[in-house]
Simulated scan of single mutants.
Amino acid sequence: MSVKKKLGMGVMSAALGLSLIGGGTYAYFNDTAESNNTFAAGTLDLSVDPVEIFSVDNLKPGDYMLRSFELQNGGTLDIARVLMDTSYTVNDADGDNAGEDFGEHLVVKFIKNEGHPEHIFDDDEYTVVYQKTLAELADMTPDDLAVELEDFLIWDYEQDGIPAGGTDYLSVKIEFNDNGEDQNKFQGDSLDLTWTFTGEQEAGERR
């Protein structure tokens, strides 16, 4: 046999040996284990009760309205804070407002609330801690308003925000400001107010 053939046979034998060795690794014992994992997001579910807080007609300068309402968290996550955005439209009955804004004559006064408000308006001892006209509130960003409300300590609760399944209580007074001047231009006018409340989650944490 030639040297070339001998070398060729040697290479084939070596390859066969490697193949047998490699194939032999599958003969070792082995076992498997499986991990099944789930990730479920929680929910924020903010609601207002009652939905219609104010519904008043035949207003005149000097009239005022006192109302309390609830912000309810029906979700599974705690709400860290609630932002309030104000928007409104004025319906000018006879078109003679001459550029004046009815919203500048309606003043919103926030009442310090120390718990359930069932009897907060039973007498005149409630405390007005912050006030703005509707026009001023509409010009503010929700974040700016939140900072100012926190500074005035409207809420006096042990916990911050609204825990899952919990309720926060707000009390407000809206007054048709009698400025002692001619306000006849607003006779017959109406104003549609929308308050939009946004609940924000707490910061993430190790779980």
Rank of each mutant, 00 (worst) to 15 (best):
G115A: 08
G75N: 08
L137M: 09
A80M: 04
L83W: 07
D182W: 02
L20N: 06
L106Y: 00
H105A: 12
G75I: 05
L170I: 14
I79Q: 06
D101N: 15
N36Y: 12
S55F: 02
V11H: 11
Y157T: 11
G62K: 00
D123F: 07
Y126K: 05
A146I: 03
V107K: 12
I53T: 08
E148Q: 14
G166C: 02
I162T: 08
L18F: 12
E70K: 15
F29I: 03
Q72D: 03
Q183D: 14
S2V: 13
L149V: 11
L193K: 07
T167D: 00
D192S: 09
D178S: 01
H105V: 03
K60F: 08
N30L: 02
L83N: 06
G23S: 15
D123V: 11
T196G: 05
V129H: 04
L193H: 03
K112Y: 03
T194G: 00
S35G: 11
D123G: 10
V51N: 07
E52R: 06
N37Q: 13
L170G: 13
G166W: 01
I111R: 13
D144A: 13
I162F: 03
Q159T: 14
E114I: 01
L16Q: 05
D182M: 04
P142L: 00
Q159K: 07
D189Y: 01
V56A: 07
E202H: 05
A14H: 07
E114Q: 03
R81T: 05
A146W: 07
G161N: 02
S68C: 13
E136L: 07
D63G: 03
F69Y: 14
S87F: 02
P50N: 08
N91D: 13
Y64E: 11
D57T: 03
S55A: 08
E34V: 15
N177D: 15
I174A: 13
S2Q: 12
P142R: 02
E181Y: 06
D45C: 06
S19L: 15
D151W: 04
N37I: 12
F152Y: 08
V172D: 10
G17D: 03
V82K: 03
T194N: 01
R67L: 06
F197T: 00
T167F: 00
V48G: 04
L66I: 07
P117I: 09
D49Y: 12
L44P: 02
I21S: 04
T43F: 08
D57P: 01
M140H: 06
